[in-house]
Design a protein around this nucleic acid. Sequence first.
DNA 1: TCGTCTTACGAACGCCGTTCGTTTACTACG
DNA 2: CGTAGTAAACGAACGGCGTTCGTAAGACGA
Lengths: 276, 276
Amino acid sequence: MVSDVPEVPTPAWRTARKPARAPRKPPVTAEAIVDAALEIVDTEGLEALSMRGVAQRLDTGAATLYAHVQNKDELLELVLDRVNGEVRLPEPDPERWQQQVRESARQIRDVYAAHNDLAKASFGKVPTMPNSLTAIEGMLALLKAGDLPDRVVSWAADLLALYTTSAAFEQGLLGLEERRNPGATDKYFRQLGEFFFALPPERFPTLTSMLASMIEGDGDERFDFGIDVITLGLRAYADRMLAEKAAEAGAEAGAADGEGAAATDRPATAADGSTN
Amino acid sequence: MVSDVPEVPTPAWRTARKPARAPRKPPVTAEAIVDAALEIVDTEGLEALSMRGVAQRLDTGAATLYAHVQNKDELLELVLDRVNGEVRLPEPDPERWQQQVRESARQIRDVYAAHNDLAKASFGKVPTMPNSLTAIEGMLALLKAGDLPDRVVSWAADLLALYTTSAAFEQGLLGLEERRNPGATDKYFRQLGEFFFALPPERFPTLTSMLASMIEGDGDERFDFGIDVITLGLRAYADRMLAEKAAEAGAEAGAADGEGAAATDRPATAADGSTN
DNA sequence: TCGTCTTACGAACGCCGTTCGTTTACTACG
DNA sequence: CGTAGTAAACGAACGGCGTTCGTAAGACGA
């Protein structure tokens, strides 16, 4: 399309050896499409991703893409899986499971946030692609090393994924807007602060009395807070669960047994797989 | 435009008394626009919401809307605020703060999920509209009744909002798809189950060993799990924080003080915080 | 060299958010 | 009653979107 119709006829011996095909463009493959799509997301954000844009970047038409990808949704899933492939989770070390969970969650957040607001595309999608499954496998293994019951581990993975994805989205969105017009984010936050400080205390007594602490902390601190709360909560939840189960068993076995403090020394039977 | 050009001339005495204007259509106001938009979201989901669709429902043109609403984004914010107005949080009762938080989070989730996938529109938006602020105020008050430090309360509100919104979105999305073609959700879940059970155990040992517990539980149970984990975690986090502060102060004042048990006056839900 | 078969792709369809310039409907005043 | 002024309404258009269809081009075995 660029110069297929020369104004002057070309001598035969010139066309004889493969004319103008030297800078051969790479063939269109699903992989190349995913690459191009991710490049667009990386430079302009998720909203700027369009089939036409991807096609343009590959020097072809939009219709071509549909030979390799069912639709935009599938393309997004492929992009997400490629990004999930960037995640590297550690081998579980039971001695440090909480740190490992924190570090891993942080890594996942950072991997996603490095691709702007891409995380938004993962909301409400059930992960089924290879790299996504590998990431889940890794996180489950980490949690299981924490000696938690199976049900707690499973549901905790969901909870952590939710939290991590949300945080990644917010951070990525912020980074994107900061890149779009640097400095505007500061101004926005200042205006936001002014707005909140101007709220009437009689209508929002609690809110206005806590503005200082609401603004406190950067993204990392706040993210770590969430992870800490969740891991501490998992521990406490599991302990409570085991205590209840023990009390039940005790009540069934004999009424003489005192009840209560069962969360003291973590018995190794925590993950006995007794769930259903 | 409906019948301005009659095929047969109308006698003068018919048009004399205000022709065809009897079923006067209500004037276009921002409120009516929000109503129409919410109706569309309620019946067809967030993705089906378009300015043209809203205009059609009001029997007018899309351009008219822009006289009352800056753009689609602002319209969405107004819709969200209207929905936030449906939330009714209880007066804080320090004796039952954990139950109150759970009930409130559940109510918020249900309010949103009742409007299909509307919750998706709230991701990444800082709440500034009246009803949103009122909801935050209420949740902060509830958390503060739990006797948590200000910083914990502030950040916990963020965390809970994230979790609740995500859960509402997932539940709403599910409900929407179930309404779109009833029964298809069951089939989808069955296929999903088959897919996961067919995964190779040597590549996903942890995942495949826990499939039973991953599938366990309905939406409510799983949501409550998350809320319980978070509230238990908040308690534990606050206790650990206070213990550290106490230890610091103790170390400064004199080295003679014993350390540890700071969760004394709190009824102590298995939150010993002794891990690592 | 021919026929087949995969891949590429221009053009079109029906949507979308938003803007522009004009028309309409109503109010207030002469 | 007539008219000027004004705010609301809105048709038409712009550029872009996801997706489909029928055709064109190239690869390749017979």
